[in-house]
Structures are given as structure tokens and as C-alpha cells.
């Protein structure tokens, strides 16, 4: 399980990256993170929403209430053009950390 401050710090690139693949809603985002991290990143469900609202306030994502195929209305989030730029920066920064650690731990670094 990830430490609390790491969970907080990684939530922004995770959400932005998921939304870069297409619009999504809170429940689906949490499921995706749980699945992709193999259970290592476990968000308390409700806490994702303040993260989403903060990103929306910063103009990185936008939201819209839409009816899903099931007939249930959900609030969908999608990436804005500012969000796409922010994701690029996040990616460079996280990979810089990743590569530094990789070299220290003798793992093959990736190209940024």
C-alpha cells in the first residue's frame, strides 16, 4: 500500500492520464486505478471527488452531467487543453524521479 503523501501527490497525474484516454466518472476512475496498480494504490472512494473538483477549478478538466446507458445520470469529467499541457509536464517530472531511482537501483531507465 502506498504512503498517504504519495497517494495525494500521484492523484493528479493518475486522473489526468486516465482522462487522456477519454471521458470518465468518479467510480470508473477509482476502479481503473485499483485495477492498474494491482491493488497497491487504494483510494478511499469519496476522497477522489475533492481531487476532481480541484482539477476542475484549476481548469485542467471539465465536467458534464450525462445519462449513461443504464439510465443513471453521472457526472462525467474530460480533459481540457490546459489539462493536456499539464499532463505533459507531470509526465516529464515523474519520469525524471523514476529514472533517477532506476539508475540508483540498477533498473533500466526509460526515455523521457
Amino acid at each position: 500500500m502506498l504512503a498517504k503523501d504519495l497517494v495525494a501527490a500521484s492523484s493528479k497525474p493518475l486522473v489526468l492520464s486516465i482522462l487522456a484516454d477519454g471521458e470518465s466518472y468518479g467510480y470508473e476512475i477509482i476502479q481503473k486505478v485499483r485495477e492498474l496498480s494491482g491493488g497497491h494504490i487504494e483510494w478511499s472512494d469519496g476522497m477522489l471527488y475533492p481531487v476532481l473538483h480541484r482539477l476542475e477549478r484549476d481548469g485542467l478538466i471539465d465536467s458534464e452531467w450525462k445519462e449513461a446507458n443504464t439510465g443513471r445520470e453521472r457526472k462525467y469529467y474530460f480533459l481540457s487543453s490546459d489539462g493536456r499541457k499539464a499532463l505533459k509536464t507531470e509526465r516529464q517530472q515523474w519520469l525524471a524521479v523514476h529514472n533517477t531511482l532506476s539508475r540508483l537501483w540498477k533498473i533500466k531507465p526509460v526515455s523521457i
Partner: peptide
């Protein structure tokens, strides 16, 4: 009210 609606759809999905 928007926050509450969002949390409720989440609960129902879960």
C-alpha cells in the same frame, strides 16, 4: 447539492 448528487451516484454504482 451537486456534490451530494455525485456522491449518491457513486454509492449506487458501488
Amino acid at each position: 447539492s451537486d456534490d451530494r448528487r455525485e456522491l449518491e451516484t457513486h454509492l449506487r454504482d458501488a
